[in-house]
C-alpha cells in the first residue's frame, strides 16, 4: 500500500476550490432531485456552468437536459452559439419562447416593444410544470446584486415560482436540502460564490469559447445617461438621439432591450480580465436597464419568480 503523507500545507488555488465546490453542488442536485434541468442561455455564466457540469459527470453524458427561455429578443450570434455548444456535447436542448406564452395569453404585454426580460419567469414556470422539473440549475452569482447576496445555494420556490426571503431554509456546512413537495422546485446556484473576475479567469483557464459579442467590436450605439444603448431593429435610435459607432463589448448578455454594451478595447480574454480587475462600474450597474427602477427591483422580481 502506498503510504501517502497528506501534506498539511497543500492549498487549492481559488479557481480549483471554486470548481470543486461547484461540482459538489451539481452532484448534490443530481443525487437529491429526480428531474433537474440546467438553464443554458449561451451567456458567459451559463457557459462556465455547462463546463462544470461536463467535468462533474465525465465520462457519462450530462444527467439532465438544457433549457433556454428565449425572450425572442436575443442576439442571433448568442443563439447560434447556444445551439452549437449543446450539439457538441450531445446534450438535449429544450427551448421555450416567451412568444408562445404571449400566444397562449399567459403573458400580456403593455406595449409591444417593452422588455420581455421579466416575462421570462412566466414561460419558465410553464415549462417547469410541463416537464415536471424539480430543480433548475442556474448561473446566478451572489456578487451580482444585493438580493442575491442573501439567497441560498439551493433556493426553494413555491408552486408560483415565488422566492420568500424570510422563509429561506438555513444552509449549513455542505448539507444541502433540496427536498420539495409536488409543485415546488429548487433553484440551484453552483457558482453563487464566484465573482465576475472568477468567471473570466475560469473561462481563460478552461479555454472556453464565447459568443463573439463578449469581445470588443464596432457597433452603432446611442448614449443614454452614462450607459450605451445598442441600435438594433428592436431598439432603434429615436429622432433626437445621435448614433455613434463605438468599439464596445458586452459584460453581460441577455434580452436585447435591457442589456447594454460598455466601451472597451478588450478583444482578448487577458485584456477583459485586466479590465474587469480594474473596473469601476459593477456588472449589472454598467449594463442593465432593468435593475435601476428602485433600490430593491431584483428582490421584487425574484419574489415573483424571476431567476
Amino acid at each position: 500500500m502506498t503510504t501517502l503523507t497528506p501534506s498539511r500545507t497543500r492549498t487549492l488555488s481559488h479557481l480549483d476550490w471554486l470548481e470543486a465546490d461547484a461540482i459538489h453542488i451539481l452532484r448534490e442536485v443530481v443525487g437529491q432531485c429526480a428531474n433537474p434541468v440546467l438553464l443554458f442561455s449561451g451567456g458567459k455564466d451559463s457557459i462556465c456552468l455547462l463546463r462544470l457540469a461536463e467535468k462533474a459527470f465525465r465520462p457519462a453524458p450530462l444527467p439532465f437536459p438544457l433549457l433556454h427561455i428565449d425572450t425572442g429578443h436575443n442576439y442571433p450570434e448568442v443563439l447560434a452559439f447556444r445551439d452549437e455548444r449543446a450539439a457538441e456535447l450531445g446534450a438535449r436542448l429544450i427551448v421555450r419562447s416567451v412568444e408562445d406564452s404571449i400566444a397562449r395569453g399567459s403573458v400580456v404585454l403593455r406595449d409591444p416593444g417593452e422588455s420581455r426580460n421579466r416575462h421570462q419567469s412566466v414561460t419558465l414556470l410553464e415549462t417547469i410544470e410541463a416537464f415536471g422539473f424539480d430543480a433548475c440549475i442556474g448561473g446566478a452569482r451572489r456578487d451580482e446584486e444585493k438580493a442575491r447576496a442573501k439567497e441560498r445555494i439551493m433556493s426553494l420556490r413555491d408552486a408560483f415560482g415565488q422566492w420568500d426571503p424570510k422563509q429561506q431554509r438555513p444552509e449549513l456546512w455542505s448539507l444541502y436540502n433540496a427536498r420539495t413537495h409536488p409543485g415546488e422546485n429548487i433553484r440551484a446556484f453552483p457558482i453563487s460564490d464566484w465573482t465576475e473576475l472568477d468567471v473570466w479567469q475560469y473561462i481563460r483557464r478552461e479555454r472556453l469559447a464565447l459568443p463573439s459579442i463578449y469581445f470588443a467590436h464596432y457597433r452603432p450605439v446611442v448614449r443614454v445617461g452614462s450607459r450605451l444603448r445598442p441600435v438594433t431593429p428592436l431598439t432603434p435610435a429615436r429622432e433626437e438621439e445621435r448614433i455613434e459607432t463605438l468599439r464596445v463589448r458586452f459584460r453581460t448578455v441577455g434580452d436585447i432591450t435591457c442589456t447594454a454594451p460598455v466601451a472597451s478595447e478588450a478583444d482578448t480574454l487577458e485584456a477583459i480580465i485586466a479590465e474587469t480587475a480594474a473596473a469601476t462600474q459593477s456588472e449589472r450597474g454598467a449594463t442593465r436597464f432593468d435593475d435601476h427602477t428602485s433600490e430593491s427591483s431584483m428582490e421584487e422580481r425574484k419574489k415573483a419568480g424571476y431567476f
Binding site: 492549498t11 487549492l12 488555488s13 481559488h14 479557481l15 480549483d16 476550490w17 471554486l18 473576475l197 482578448t268 487577458e270 485584456a271 480580465i273 485586466a274 480587475a277
Partner: peptide, 14 residues
C-alpha cells in the same frame, strides 16, 4: 503571455 499586468490570485487560495 499577456501584455497586461495580470491579477494573479492563485497563490494562497481562498
Amino acid at each position: 503571455s499577456s501584455p497586461h499586468a495580470f491579477p494573479e490570485i492563485d497563490d494562497h487560495g481562498l
